[in-house]
Design a binder for these strands. Structure first.
Lengths: 176, 176
DNA sequence: AAATTATGTCAGCCATATTGACATAATTAG
DNA sequence: CTAATTATGTCAATATGGCTGACATAATTT
């Protein structure tokens, strides 16, 4: 083996054939359209995608602190500030002083906030459901495992909801 | 039927239980980290994600026109202009007059452009490969079908590479 | 008492997106 | 042939959502 006519695969570590352009592009296209769903709704409220992300996670993890939210969104405090302030001023989110540590501000959605969060999730959920059906997905758990495995290992704890037993946390009980 | 104590499911079309928050969040987290991979590389070139997307699609669809690129990226001409101009000026992309329609500018990567495009794809491809393995994906085709089904039906043609039979990615494309 | 932490805020900067208007050249339609 | 349309490029202005650095306050920890 290793005939002189063959490219030296040990040194040329990557050529096009080795790269999974198919899934790279499918992820791009899928996410492009997935995120486009809520935009029309958001525009009617004068909000953008940043508001959506904040509202989503506050709704899903009620009581999370500002620091936790920053870690989930992977943005800085200053980037969050403007968006969060608007959501609070307009009555979608409330802050309450942390019970254990009074420096912390726990974030909760108001009823108005929950309603909007759900309204934004509806088209995304519908798209997912239609895609699962259309693709004839039988092993949904495999899809969840794949997506979770795409997340940086040290950040996978963020994927799981805190303090909720009834939630689907795709089979493996142990945290990794 | 329709007892006064039960919520009216026919009118309240969506409550939390109906919504696929699990996959909504998994898509968010997976894509968040997936896109973070090339950032370090791009920063060394003074480029951002916009440059990455342009270079990626020019590399993958050599000869595509400006209008086609705009449709794929779903941005406006003005948004593309600055980024494309930089990539051209810095020698990553070349424009050639369209053969059929001389108004069109066909876009091609230079060798330098192809090299960078591949370098950016490497960590993304590695992440995908590791996730497929870690998740023990056996039915890769199902995953591809799902992601493609997530794309707006009228835009699915964009997903398929033009003028290429199946998976063959031979070297067409003009040299600089 | 001092250090650290959680949060908030100010000021400014950058990247990427938008809309609208207009210019040019090439193609197509009448 | 002329007129309309098309593909592209460009200008100006604006919005959004990121960033860094600096500083302030209150609460907790050492």
């Amino acid at each position: 083996m290793n005939s002189p006519m063959k490219p030296d695969r040990q040194h040329v570590a990557h050529d096009e054939a080795d790269l999974d352009f198919t899934l790279i592009e499918l992820l791009f296209f899928a996410y492009r359209d997935f995120t486009s769903d809520p935009d029309a709704i958001l525009a009617r409220y004068g909000f953008g995608r940043a508001h959506h992300r904040v509202l989503h996670f506050v709704n899903r993890r009620p009581g999370l602190t500002v620091a936790e939210l920053l870690a989930v969104l992977r943005i800085t405090k200053q980037s969050l500030a403007r968006v969060l302030k608007q959501l609070i001023n307009m009555g979608y989110i409330v802050q309450v002083q942390g019970p254990r540590d009074r420096r912390q501000r726990e974030l909760y959605p108001t009823k108005k906030g929950r309603t909007l969060a759900l309204a934004l999730a509806v088209p995304q959920s519908r798209r997912i459901r239609a895609a699962l059906e259309e693709a004839g997905i039988e092993d949904r758990a495999a899809l969840e495992r794949f997506l979770k495995a795409m997340v940086n290992p040290e950040l996978r704890a963020q994927v799981d909801l805190p303090g909720r037993s009834a939630e689907r946390t795709s089979e493996r009980g142990k945290t990794e």
